[in-house]
Design a binder for these strands. Sequence first.
DNA 1: AAGTGCGCACCGT
DNA 2: ACGGTGCGCACTT
Length: 331
Amino acid sequence: MSESKYREWILDTIDSLRSRKARPDLERICRMVRRRHGSEPDRTCAELEKLIQEQTVLKVNYKGSISYRNAAKVQRRSRKKDDVSLTTAAARRSAAVEEASHSDLSNGDSAFGAADPDEDLEGDTSMTMDTDSNPDEEGAEESRDGQDRPSPSHAREDASVRAVSAPCSPSGAQPGTGPSCSSGSARDCAASQKASGRPNSLPPSSPRALPHNDWAYDSAASPVEHQHPGMQRDKAVDTKPDVPSRTASPCAVNNVKKEAGHKVEDSGLSSDQLVPDSAARLRDEVKNGSDGRSPAFSDNCTFKKIQVSYTASDGSLLNGDKGEEISVKKE
DNA sequence: AAGTGCGCACCGT
DNA sequence: ACGGTGCGCACTT
């Protein structure tokens, strides 16, 4: 029961933030929800996460920071070719979603989203949805409620949505100073966002340092587990294009592999990057594979960032700051 | 201090 | 040209 309530609150909040022209990021969302309804950020976080998994809320990486979108409101206007693929996409989507959720639960996805602005990772439109199919937002939401019905429409901006699992570190993380875990986690989330989201500054060497550096934010999924620190780092430094994203997620591969087959064509599709974890990953993988080369650069950056942020939130508060610094430095 | 409103620049379509 | 997004600032509570 509280679930639907939360959904409502969260969506409402996102909405409100948007209308205020403020970025609907975790921090703001949590704060606002708490303010308005007194719900603890922690809980909000969790609920938000759920919504993301249901795709009621889309987690998007926009301009280098994490944003959340009300899926019901995100619509794409002109997207003809997509429409075609949308159909197929929809099908996949559901599959993907399911798998995603499964894997997510187990944390199957690794943080290698490997999205790179350069290459237009955004090929990941797979999950784009027709909002047309949404009857009305409210109603839709309601109905959507119970099942993880992929329903989102999809965002047009250049943002990549990926993380579906944990917007914030699930349990542990929490600021030593903050006694209340709730605020702690909220902050935590925010922190991680910030840490990871601050990016933008692409290295000069980057061919097209877009102001919008939409690196993939695969993140959420894994606070700790995968992520091979050493390798990414090296790579980042290196300009070596290959391996990175691909090695990335064995789990993901497993999960998605099957789909990979038909997805390939899609990849070039659009610049929209809304993608469910698995899908995204999958796509990336496919892409990389087919291309034979991968956009190592931004990839790595992304990587680093993610990792860093998680590390920070994850455990050592002490290190948190350091982590950030490090990432900066690297860049 | 925190929340809010909004001008503005940016970007993709 | 248009619409979406979010920063940054000023205003309100």
